[in-house]
């Protein structure tokens, strides 16, 4: 395997909320074109890792570099402009705005002429969104809202996409669709960091994976090796 370009790296990142240390010396890397999974139990700190990368939270210590440049402490607006999109936990759609408005605002940082074409591409991937483009997002089903959140994230034309539990609360068939969708994003050239509690899905899609336990990275390796690891199997894959 030839060496890929390093895209994102976290080195010794520590973060406190109040007095509790939520992230403890976290280091991880994501290379260009990879799909990396971050798995862990409830409250392990997965969301916190993503929110720290996208600038919503500031690390107490440690560095985060994107394409070789330090980005820790920058605000979310600057980070999305660098090419990192964050599809947040629980979708966080804007309930009283239309599907179309979500996609327009997804492209908020852009002023090129290709926004409409990109929107058409999202509609091709999610035809149901096209049918409902004037509908308010609050009236969509959970699966449709997830598609919308993904579409919104992609509208910024990111080179790295952070997904936070995109399968949460979805029907099994929907989970498969979303999974295929995420694999497709990687196949079209974007890099993906995927946070999931559904470890079997995440490890099936991913090239490599990290396991986070109470704020610490406890295990890392190729996804296939993780699936075969008996401990991972017992703790995250249900037997």
């Amino acid at each position: 395997m030839h060496r890929r370009l390093r895209m994102l790296s976290l080195a010794n990142v520590t973060l406190h909320r109040g007095r509790t240390r939520v992230l403890d010396d976290v280091s991880l890397v994501v290379d260009e074109g990879e799909l990396v999974a971050l798995i862990g139990a409830n409250g392990a700190g997965k969301t916190t890792v993503l929110r720290t990368i996208s600038g919503i939270l500031k690390p107490s210590t440690g560095t985060i570099t994107f394409r070789g440049k330090p980005i820790q402490g920058a605000d979310p607006g600057a980070i999305v402009r660098l090419g990192i999109a964050h599809c947040p936990e629980e979708r966080k759609i804007w309930p009283d705005m239309s599907v179309q408005e979500h996609l327009e605002l997804g492209a908020f940082i852009r002023n090129d002429g290709d926004v409409d074409a990109d929107m058409e591409r999202i509609f091709e991937t999610f035809p149901v969104l096209k049918e409902r483009r004037e509908q308010l997002a609050g009236t969509l089903s959970g699966g449709q809202q997830q598609m919308l959140a993904i579409g919104r994230a992609l509208m910024s034309r990111p080179s790295l996409v952070l997904f936070d539990e995109p399968s949460l609360g979805l029907a099994p068939i929907m989970v498969e669709t979303i999974g295929t969708m995420i694999a497709g994003i990687r196949d079209r050239g974007a890099t993906v960091l995927l946070v999931e509690q559904n470890a079997s899905l995440a490890l099936r899609l991913a090239d490599r994976a990290y396991v986070l336990e109470t704020g610490r990275i406890t295990l890392t390796g190729p996804a296939q090796a993780m699936i075969e690891n008996p401990e991972v199997h017992r703790a995250y894959l249900g037997g």
Binding site: S54, I56, D75, G77, H86, I93, L105, F108
Partner: peptide, 12 residues
Amino acid sequence: QNKESAALVGIR
């Protein structure tokens, strides 16, 4: 309607 996701699409 949601400050966090507004910030995440780059709204200052």
